[in-house]
Simulated assay, not measured.
Amino acid sequence: MAQNSAMAVLLLIEDDDAQRFVAAFALKKAGHSVHEAADGPSGLALAREIKPEAIVCDVMMPGMTGYEVVTELRQDAEIGHTPFVLLTAMSDRKQVRKGMTSGADDYLTKPYRPEELCEAVDAVLERRLSQQEAFLSSVSGVVEDALLQQKEHLGRRYEQQLAKEVSARWERKADAKGDLHYENAVLLQADLLGPGANGTSSQEGLAERVKRAHQQARDTLYLFGADHVLPYGADLLSVFAGDSGTATMSAELRAARAAFALGKAAPGACGLHRGPVSLVAVHDELHDVQGHSIVPGPAVSSVGGMRDHARSAGWRVAASSAAAEGLQGQVATGQRATTAQGEQAVELLPLEPG
């Protein structure tokens, strides 16, 4: 007889002394702790007291049948979830159906072998455990979603504050003509380090790797006609204006091909999005450095969301619907999904030659 790996507290309700003894002996031998009751009312009272992990109950008992026991049990909020196995000498289908519709989890016909009883009990216990694990998993998913939403909310607040700080801390030496605004640019955000960044042995090694990746990726991005390539944490954020580059290749296609070509230079995920973006001309008087800084906004947030989704989904390139629309027939597409921000993401794949 197979031994159960974990002892369970069981309640056995059986009016026949001999059959109760045999069933209790088999279940105890299988490693379970067995409490016994000789009729329905005393069995229900004992169930409310000990709260067993499963109940095995005879159907035909004087005063209160097994059907009535399981029906009343299911109405008790505290123990109504307890797995329930019915035992009966009746094998008629109508009786079996009656037992299952009363709320029983399994039905065993007498005479049965001790092994069959133990297997039936193990099955309802395992089934209930699987249900509990599925419930806990779903609850965990809800908590993770809530934390992710909070992270996105804090991220948006940070971007808004950063925009204010850019205006407050930097003096723009160039006049208004030095600022740039693109109504319909394509943004490409590339993860330079990829998933192996945590394996870098030292801070110096990581810094050298970032420096090397920045230079290689910049060369590739400018080769494909990027108008601006800006550091963005460990990423590079590129702006492809719709009116630059070759006249025969759209900004979307140039950005998509750049993402595919980055390869070894930027082995991580890439995000692609089309939308309005602004850059401000800034001047650091202390170091006499002139350049541009990108202004955080919805488009920058969207391309970051695409990059994040590509990283979590294991995609190479994730494009928003706005960017993917301009690439129909020019690149292959894979999976589609919804990002944490609720935007539609499309996996981009290079067209196979031929």
Results as ranks from 00 to 15, higher is better:
M60Y: 03
L237H: 10
V303W: 09
G354D: 12
A18K: 07
Q161M: 13
D16P: 03
R156Q: 14
G329L: 00
L253V: 14
A261P: 01
M64K: 08
V280R: 11
A323L: 07
P114A: 10
S42R: 12
G305R: 07
S301G: 15
E126C: 06
A104Y: 06
R212T: 11
S138M: 15
E116I: 04
L180C: 14
E208P: 00
A299T: 12
S33A: 13
E204H: 01
V186Y: 10
Q344L: 06
Q215R: 13
D105N: 15
D105S: 15
P114C: 10
Y222Q: 12
A345N: 02
A322S: 14
L10Q: 04
G263H: 00
V69K: 06
A123C: 07
K177S: 11
T339D: 09
Q341N: 05
G263L: 02
V210I: 06
A258F: 00
D179A: 09
R156E: 14
G99N: 06
R307K: 15
H292E: 01
A247T: 11
G275R: 01
L206I: 01
E36P: 03
L237C: 09
V210D: 01
G194D: 10
T88H: 00
R127D: 08
M1Y: 08
R48D: 03
P114R: 11
Q3I: 05
Q203G: 14
S238E: 06
V166S: 04
V210W: 04
L180K: 15
E183S: 15
S5A: 12
G63V: 06
V56R: 04
R336A: 06
E347K: 00
E159I: 01
A226T: 12
E183T: 13
L327K: 05
A37Q: 08
R20E: 10
V331M: 03
S278A: 07
R157W: 12
K264S: 09
G334A: 03
M60L: 13
A258T: 05
D243T: 03
L327N: 07
D39N: 14
A256F: 09
V282T: 10
E352M: 04
E352Q: 12
V229T: 09
E68C: 09
S202G: 04
D284N: 14
G199W: 12
K94P: 03
S238D: 05
A77E: 09
V69G: 02
A255K: 08
D175R: 01
G305N: 13
H153V: 01
A340G: 12
A38L: 02
L237I: 09
S320L: 02
S91Y: 01
F240M: 04
P52K: 14
A259D: 05
T82H: 06
S312M: 14
A123L: 12
E68W: 04
L87N: 00
V317F: 08
A2P: 13
A261D: 02
S278Y: 01
F84C: 02
G141V: 03
A207T: 07
T246K: 14
